[in-house]
Design a protein around this nucleic acid. Structure first.
Length: 558
DNA sequence: CAAAGACCTG
DNA sequence: CAGGTCTTTG
């Protein structure tokens, strides 16, 4: 009872920021090198194939969005602390020797590679068959534009005054949602491109065939390497602009007590270092509707829908491809591998950044934007071709929790502060839940909240001592100091663009703390409880992409 | 009384 | 972040 009031206040001095830390270095040189290398390969393949058939303008949004996160904020990152998770998981720890797996997997994978190659060849033939009859019919005139402009997605981040100014380095999230891109699957849709070829010129077809062959082989190689080295590194890139789509239609829930804050200044949370840029209406944009992007729908604490309507614009709901991809990788992997080659130093990242926009695309994203019909066709068609190797699809279900899981949990915190255990289970399909695991995860979120509330209280008090009187003056914007702190804590690697809904919640929380403290409520031992209660009702739906088990792995490696 | 959380500590 | 304690809740 009594311990509630005192302790937090003690350290609320504005100086006690948990900053000044080092980046947790988890990338090995080898990882880097291979990744770049493979990216380059992919790029070439894609370029070739596309160059053959597509009118250049067709699918490119026009800007190449450099997604290389090369320039991290020189800022201090979190304390580098070993992520001690998998180690001491007490009871249900299975301590597999990872390197073993790798070795064994090596040969097996090779065999599978051959298999794959063959199968892909089959696929090509299918493709050609599909192409030839069609080409003459089409004639040279009818190259229609098959890619609806992707402006819609882009507008989200482009139009955001804050995104632009506050996080120039955060470019991991350009496209729409969707997260994982699979080298394997990706090639296939490309292979369908010939349909677009204007004329039925034999030469073209012939050339195409050659290139296809080459491309496919390369792609397979790439996949193999990837799989052996760092399966999912950089594979996923969260696209938050879609979170809103994950739910019904309430794009704009405004919980009671939440209102638009139109104050031109967000004093406390706007650190001195922020100079409003010309033309960027910093504060006057209402927090409630910062972007045209949908807000996270605030959902009452209900059971998460296991599957969102596939009718949503957001391709991330294309679950099938997802699973599909899992299967492929699983097969190649045999089981998750953790191989680290020792290799050459990193290479130029130029080639990569050049092509990164496409490289970042996900198969199912492509499918909707660029390959309306063909993708599904190929996709379905090719499926049976693959594996003679059946594999338990949910292959890498592990018992312990990996650092990747932790990362993912943190990202999830942006959407849900109080996830139920069932929600957690739904979002960690690759985790074998038991009592310990569950409580550990719950504990994680408990810790997350702790940090969160401490920060909120701290900044609220700071605002008060700074002379702020109107809670509406407070808001958490992307350039706020508190935002930086939070982002650093929950999203170190900028794996995800912090969703606007989180900013809203944070703002609200901040204001609530402000009100409470300035009203002197903090003398009450349990004065925070009402705030907790409010916040606990404001969890949003979590984007489906986060559900992917691959996502954890990807995060693991990055 | 058990479970869920907050809070404290290391 | 994990462990432990203490409260609260149902």
């Amino acid at each position: 009872m009594e311990r509630e009031g005192s302790p937090p206040t003690a350290e609320l001095g504005r100086d006690s920021l948990p900053s000044g830390q080092l980046p947790s270095s988890s990338l090995t040189d080898a990882d880097w090198f291979w990744d770049e290398n493979i990216q380059a390969k992919r790029a070439r393949v894609e370029t070739i194939v596309r160059g053959m058939c597509l009118s250049p303008s067709a699918m490119l949004p026009g800007s190449e969005r450099a997604r290389e996160s090369s320039c991290y904020p020189g800022k201090s990152r979190e304390r580098k602390r070993k992520q001690s998770l998998p180690t001491h998981q007490g009871p249900q720890k299975s301590g597999p020797a990872w390197d073993h797996r790798l070795k064994k997997g090596g040969t097996r994978v090779k065999e599978q590679l051959h298999l794959l190659k063959q199968q892909l060849r089959h696929l090509q033939e299918h493709v050609l068959q599909a192409t030839e009859p069609r080409a003459p019919a089409q004639g040279s005139g009818g190259t229609e534009q098959r890619s609806p402009p992707r402006a819609k997605q882009r507008s989200n981040f482009l139009s955001s005054p804050w995104t632009v100014e506050s996080k120039p380095h955060q470019n991991s999230n350009k496209d729409i949602c969707g997260a994982v891109k699979s080298r394997t699957v990706e090639v296939q849709p490309q292979a369908e491109e010939p349909m677009l070829c204007p004329s039925g010129s034999q030469a073209l077809v012939e050339a195409l065939r050659k290139e296809l062959n080459r491309a496919v082989s390369q792609a397979v190689d790439s996949v193999l390497q990837q799989v052996l080295l760092g399966p999912l590194r950089h594979l996923t890139r969260q696209e938050p602009s879609c979170q809103g789509l994950a739910s019904e239609g309430r794009s704009h829930a405004s919980p009671p007590g939440r209102s638009a804050h139109k104050d031109p200044l967000a004093l406390t949370t706007l650190p001195r270092r922020v100079q409003p840029q010309a033309g960027v209406p910093l504060g006057n944009s209402s927090l409630a509707t910062p972007l045209d992007s949908p807000m996270c729908p605030v959902s009452p604490r209900t059971v998460p829908k296991p599957y969102q309507s596939p009718l949503a614009n957001c391709p991330l709901t294309a679950v099938p491809s997802h699973i599909w991809e899992n299967q492929i990788l699983s097969q190649l992997l045999g089981r998750g591998s953790d191989g680290h080659w020792s290799g050459s130093p990193p290479q130029d990242s130029l080639s990569q950044s050049r092509t990164s926009p496409e490289a970042t695309q996900q198969p199912w994203v492509l499918s909707q934007q660029q390959l309306p019909l063909s993708f599904t066709t190929v996709h379905l068609e090719s499926r049976p071709l693959l594996p003679s190797v059946k594999m338990e699809q949910a292959s890498h279900i592990q018992e312990g929790l990996s650092p990747g899981h932790l990362k993912k949990a943190k990202l999830m915190f942006f959407f849900a502060r109080y996830p139920s255990s069932s929600l957690l289970k739904a979002y960690f399909p690759d985790v074998q839940f038991n009592r310990c695991i569950t409580s550990q995860m719950i504990k994680w979120f408990s810790n997350f909240r702790e940090f969160y509330y401490i920060q909120m209280e701290k900044y609220a008090r700071q605002a008060i001592s700074d002379g702020v009187t109107n809670p509406k003056m407070l808001s958490v914007l992307r350039d706020s100091e508190i935002f930086r702190v939070l982002n650093t804590h929950y999203n170190k690697g900028n794996d995800l663009e912090v969703p606007d809904c989180f900013l809203e919640i944070a703002t609200l929380t901040l204001q609530e703390f402000f009100r409470a403290v300035s009203a002197g409520k903090d003398t009450d031992p349990s004065w925070k409880k009402p705030i907790y209660k409010i916040i606990s009702k404001l969890d949003s739906d979590i984007p489906e992409i986060l559900k992917s088990s691959n996502y954890s792995q990807e995060l693991f490696r990055s």
